[in-house]
Amino acid sequence: MDEITRDPQLLKGILPTLILAALGRQETYGYELVTRLRDAGLADIAPGTVYPVLTRLERDGSLEAHLVASPSGPARKYYRPTAAGLTRLADGTSAWNALADIVQTMTATDPTT
């Protein structure tokens, strides 16, 4: 698959939803989350982009965190969505899909031309 140029503002707007979706599937720690996002197609996502979003989501009650001992260093902070986070995920997904529908409608080729 060819790498496409992404508008950073689009990613900024949808990244909290992507993080909640990934953590809704399986709780994990920050760097593993970065790896999962990269594997999903965000090859150029940096940890410095993801960690502030994790902090904001935890601060606003969308994520909860707990420490898990690591065999290869200090304990890792694992994240998982709260009930409020799952609601935010559902709302964010619906909003994104509605916007994608509008983009699809606006960019569709007019069959009468």
Score class of each variant (00 low, 15 high):
1 M>Y: 15
2 D>C: 05
2 D>K: 12
4 I>L: 14
5 T>W: 06
5 T>N: 09
5 T>M: 10
8 P>L: 13
9 Q>I: 13
11 L>V: 15
13 G>S: 05
15 L>D: 03
16 P>V: 01
21 A>N: 11
22 A>Y: 02
22 A>P: 05
23 L>K: 04
25 R>N: 13
27 E>Q: 08
29 Y>V: 02
29 Y>F: 09
31 Y>A: 01
33 L>H: 03
33 L>D: 00
33 L>T: 04
35 T>F: 01
35 T>R: 15
37 L>T: 07
38 R>T: 00
38 R>H: 03
39 D>E: 14
40 A>L: 04
40 A>V: 02
40 A>W: 09
41 G>I: 03
41 G>D: 01
46 A>E: 11
49 T>W: 02
50 V>Q: 01
54 L>Y: 03
55 T>G: 05
55 T>D: 12
56 R>P: 01
56 R>C: 02
57 L>H: 06
61 G>C: 07
61 G>A: 10
62 S>D: 05
63 L>N: 07
64 E>G: 05
65 A>H: 10
65 A>G: 11
65 A>F: 06
67 L>W: 15
70 S>E: 10
70 S>F: 13
70 S>I: 14
71 P>W: 06
72 S>F: 15
72 S>I: 14
73 G>F: 09
74 P>G: 15
76 R>H: 12
77 K>T: 12
77 K>D: 06
79 Y>K: 07
80 R>L: 03
81 P>V: 04
81 P>L: 07
85 G>Q: 08
85 G>D: 09
87 T>F: 09
87 T>I: 10
88 R>W: 02
97 N>K: 13
98 A>Y: 09
99 L>S: 09
103 V>S: 05
103 V>W: 10
104 Q>S: 11
105 T>Q: 11
106 M>H: 11
106 M>V: 13
107 T>D: 02
110 D>V: 10
112 T>P: 07
